[in-house]
Nucleic acid binder design. Structure first.
Length: 297
DNA sequence: CGAATGACCTGTGAGC
DNA sequence: TGCTCACAGGTCATTC
């Protein structure tokens, strides 16, 4: 489900609640997500205060007062829902007026927010492809989930020259290369299709073909680097994209799906100025690729 | 080593 | 109405 813009939207929605909040209690309703929760999970976070909530690629990172960081990945269908306990004077009262938990609510954290109000954070994940890990801050960089992540596309260092170093000599397709989190971290199926369409590049083209023998980026790679950053920025501004499941922590749906140029538009006219092509779908590495054969080369 | 494939899990919509 | 199949935003293990 969530790619970088959706994860960033979730992070922004959760940060005001989580940062400075104390974790009062932990209700593990289904401890086997994609992976089992780490040993002693409840004891290791109960009573802790959340210092900061940040993002790396599609991961959210909550640094705790205990010297550990909680690493959260939403998989395909993971979502966090946060509910305020307005008008409730004690955290224990909070549940009395709360709606019942829904199917696939796997984890419930009861919080005292930074201003002392009770709140409840629920992690729901239908397909259970998401997961949560805990890692000491000292070992964080070496955490298996984070250690092999590639370039962060919204970092200042991400540009055509950086992409050229990553793509040089690659025989795989642009589609597969951009989906490979070890090269560029944070893109998923939607935004890869959108960035390639915007850049006018065929998803079938070899990644290495956009790099000169001297290792310099060709013109298409310059466009691609710019369009990746642009599409991600616009999608974050729109609150992400909602196909079916995704909602922000306050329940809001994303808005960027209305601006897709390629993704999920099979058979519809290409939206590029002056292009008379149709958007086609085909399967690439087991995933649907949407593109316009007329203007993506 | 790089590249490609299947597995994990549940729900939904299309077609019969 | 009910069944079967294809498909869904991600990552990881295995195979060539």
């Amino acid at each position: 489900m969530p790619e970088l813009p959706e994860v960033e939207t979730v992070r922004r929605g959760l940060a005001p609640w989580l940062e400075g909040a104390r974790i009062l209690s932990v209700d593990l309703r289904r401890p086997d997500l994609r992976f089992p929760l780490p040993a002693g999970f409840r004891d290791r976070i109960e009573g802790a205060t959340v210092r900061t909530l940040s993002r790396r690629a599609k991961y959210m990172l909550a640094t705790l007062s205990t010297g550990e960081t909680m690493i959260m990945h939403l998989g395909m269908t993971g979502r966090f829902v946060v509910e305020a306990g307005d008008g409730v004077t004690a955290p224990g009262d909070f549940y009395d007026d709360s709606p019942r938990l829904a199917a696939h609510d796997h984890l419930v954290l009861t919080l005292a927010t930074s201003d002392g109000r009770p709140a409840r954070l629920v992690y729901n994940d239908v397909r259970r492809f998401g997961f949560i890990d805990l890692c000491s801050d000292a070992a964080l960089a070496g955490n298996p989930h984070l250690a092999s992540l590639g370039a962060e596309p919204l970092d200042d260092a991400f540009d055509a020259a950086a992409l050229a170093r990553l793509f040089e000599g690659r025989t795989t397709t642009l589609k597969a290369a951009l989906l490979d989190q070890r090269l560029v971290a944070g893109l998923g199926n939607i935004y890869v299709c959108e960035a390639l369409h915007r850049a006018g590049l065929s998803p079938r083209r070899k990644a290495g073909s956009l790099v000169t023998r001297a290792g310099a980026p060709r013109a298409g790679l310059e466009r691609l680097a710019g369009e990746i950053r642009a599409v991600l920025g616009e999608a974050i501004a729109a609150g992400g994209s909602t196909l079916r499941d995704y909602v922000a922590p306050d329940g809001a749906r994303g808005g960027f799906q209305q601006r897709f140029l390629a993704y999920d538009r099979e058979g519809e006219p290409c939206r590029r100025e002056g292009c008379a092509g149709l958007i086609r779908r085909f399967v690439q590495n087991g995933r649907s690729t949407f593109h316009c054969a007329a203007c993506q080369r």
